[in-house]
Design a binder for these strands. Structure first.
Lengths: 157, 157
DNA sequence: TATTGTTATACTCTATAACTATA
DNA sequence: TATAGTTATAGAGTATAACAATA
């Protein structure tokens, strides 16, 4: 358990991270904002999946997921296939054009990091990744709890 | 210098951090969204300062800073004093009510982290803070470069 | 009845550009 | 002319609520 002043400092650092994320967003292709990029990247990493699963991985509400998915589908980067097991559901899958975009994104991201993190060792980056993963894990699923009052009124996160 | 796959993973982790930040935002008082909280927290930490300095610390455009500052000033949490040395400028300073709000924010933030990071040691948190600070430092000031074409057309960040 | 997904609405944060006042 | 700050406008991301279709 850490001290209160440390928590305050951690909050400041997390807040300041917005600048890094906006920097990352600024190098994206015009038609592919960060929400779309996240969808494509997750589909590439985890393979085809349903909306609800994607919403979980994105850690946003399904309504938000729906809009991001519509955006990338309109551009032909994914297809929405019927789910044979549940006709309410849709299976999301990258198209070849989507895969191309994923490659483009990876290229731009790597360039960006290479420019700015040139003096970080492989190990440094690995440690940062590990700590961020642990942080996310500790917070669990921080999305709002829809219509669920079984917990306290103020969300746990 | 790290590998491209590591950079892709780092980008994913940073993107996923949005969930943690939204969780943090959800516990804020209704009248004090995260932009306002950042202003108050920075004034508390660094003492009174001018708009331009605050914009730098927030790492956002001054127009954004101006709106956040107006919001907290309307609620009486800061005062905007004339700068004796430059009449274009304004000095921002926390009021007693602003200090109270800072305390309230620190309390809520600490509660939140204590709930979720209970199994992190003081050292763990310290390491995370240090790495985030280094990350931010490596990226430098990632704000858009206004009307400055002395660099390449694509921003460095 | 409950769940999957979509759409409408509203709010926060951000950047760009045009503007005022002062240096 | 250049700089400090404000305001108007637009775009991205998100959540809530109401809704349709299916389980």
């Amino acid at each position: 358990m850490a001290a209160q002043s440390q928590y305050a400092e951690l909050a400041r650092q997390l807040s300041a991270l917005g600048a890094v994320k906006r920097g990352l967003a600024r190098i994206l292709p015009g038609e592919c904002p960060s929400g779309s990029a996240a969808v494509l990247t997750l589909l590439d990493r985890h393979g085809e999946m349903r909306m609800s699963r994607l919403a979980e991985l994105l850690a946003v509400d399904m309504s938000v997921t729906s809009r991001h998915v519509a955006h990338v589908a309109e551009r032909g980067w994914i297809e929405r296939l019927p789910d044979p097991g549940d006709r309410r559901s849709r299976i999301l899958r990258l198209t070849p054009a989507g895969l191309d975009m994923v490659d483009e994104l990876a290229q731009r991201t790597a360039d960006m990091f290479a420019r700015n993190l040139g003096d970080w060792s492989d190990d440094d980056v690995g440690q940062l990744i590990a700590m961020l993963a642990r942080l996310r894990d500790s917070f669990g699923d921080c999305r709002a709890r829809h219509h669920d009052e079984s917990y306290s009124r103020t969300p746990v996160c």
